[in-house]
Amino acid sequence: MAEGGITVTIDDAEVRAGLARVLAQLGNMAPVMEDIGRTLGNLTEDAFQASGPGWAALRPVTVARRGSAAPILQVSGGLAGSITHGGDATKAWVGASKVYAAAQQFGMPQGYAGRTRRGAPIPWGDIPPRPYLPIQDGGLLPAAQSEVLAILTRALESAVG
């Protein structure tokens, strides 16, 4: 991941339990993890296509700066284009490599000057969270959890069937 990217670790007990069952039956988990990573990537792309149900509308000052109110998070396509996903024998992942990825996912208060352009505070106000990754409160969104559990169930059924 590029410098300034974000790493979020999910601790989802139900998914982890399903994964443990599959691991007990399978030797090579890479294909299953790749499938999970691809699914998480697809769910992320779906959020961009749907302009993230529940995303806060753009503020008038932002609309004036960019010239339109839509699509949200997609003026240049840079954030959506930075989404990566994958999997290997031990993990699956989805993420974004843009320096502003975390600010869009989790929001950022106006006074924050950490990794903003030239280290300056954001002059136009708070950035509200506009979650595009399929996570919430340290776990997978329900739709993502269902899809991951379905992948694990199919893998387990295939392994024991």
Rank of each mutant, 00 (worst) to 15 (best):
G114V: 02
T39S: 10
T7R: 14
A120E: 14
A13F: 07
M1I: 12
G81K: 12
A69H: 06
P128H: 09
I72F: 02
Q25G: 13
A50L: 12
A101E: 04
P121Y: 00
T116G: 02
G114P: 01
A17H: 07
P31Q: 10
I127V: 15
P71F: 03
G81P: 09
D12V: 08
V75C: 00
T116V: 12
A80C: 03
A150V: 03
A89M: 06
A150M: 10
F106W: 11
R118N: 12
L156A: 14
R59D: 06
G139W: 04
G139T: 15
L133G: 03
M33T: 04
A30F: 02
N28F: 09
A80E: 14
L58Q: 08
I36W: 11
F106G: 01
R38H: 13
I6H: 11
A120I: 11
R59C: 00
G119A: 08
G138P: 04
F106L: 10
I135M: 13
I135K: 04
L43H: 11
L73E: 02
G5N: 14
T84H: 12
R118G: 01
A70G: 05
A155E: 03
Q74Y: 02
Y132G: 05
S82T: 14
D35A: 15
S51D: 12
E34I: 15
V99Y: 04
S51V: 08
A155M: 04
A120D: 03
M108H: 01
P128D: 05
A159Y: 09
G114E: 11
A120C: 00
V94H: 05
L73W: 04
D35Q: 15
R130V: 07
G4A: 06
S51L: 02
G107C: 04
A13V: 14
G52A: 04
F106C: 01
D35T: 15
T7Y: 06
P53N: 08
R66E: 06
G86K: 12
T90P: 00
Q145H: 13
A20V: 11
L58G: 03
V63D: 03
R65I: 09
I135R: 06
P60D: 12
Q105L: 06
M108Y: 02
P53K: 12
V75T: 12
V61A: 15
V99P: 01
G18C: 09
D46Q: 15
A13C: 00
E147S: 14
A2V: 13
L58S: 08
A80N: 11
S68M: 11
Q105Y: 07
P142L: 06
E3F: 12
T84E: 13
G125H: 07
P128I: 08
Y132V: 10
Y112Q: 08
R21H: 10
G54S: 04
V61C: 08
M29H: 04
M33I: 10
L79T: 10
E3Q: 12
V61D: 13
P128A: 13
L79M: 14
K91L: 11
A103C: 01
Y132M: 07
A143R: 15
D46G: 01
A2N: 14
T153Y: 09
A92P: 01
G18A: 10
R117S: 07
G111L: 05
G54C: 04
A120P: 00
A2M: 10
A2C: 00
L79G: 07
L140W: 14
G86I: 13
N42R: 15
Q145I: 03
K98A: 15
A56Y: 03
I72G: 01
P123Q: 02
A69N: 11
G78W: 01
R59L: 04
I127Q: 09
T9W: 05
G27P: 00
I10T: 09
V148C: 09
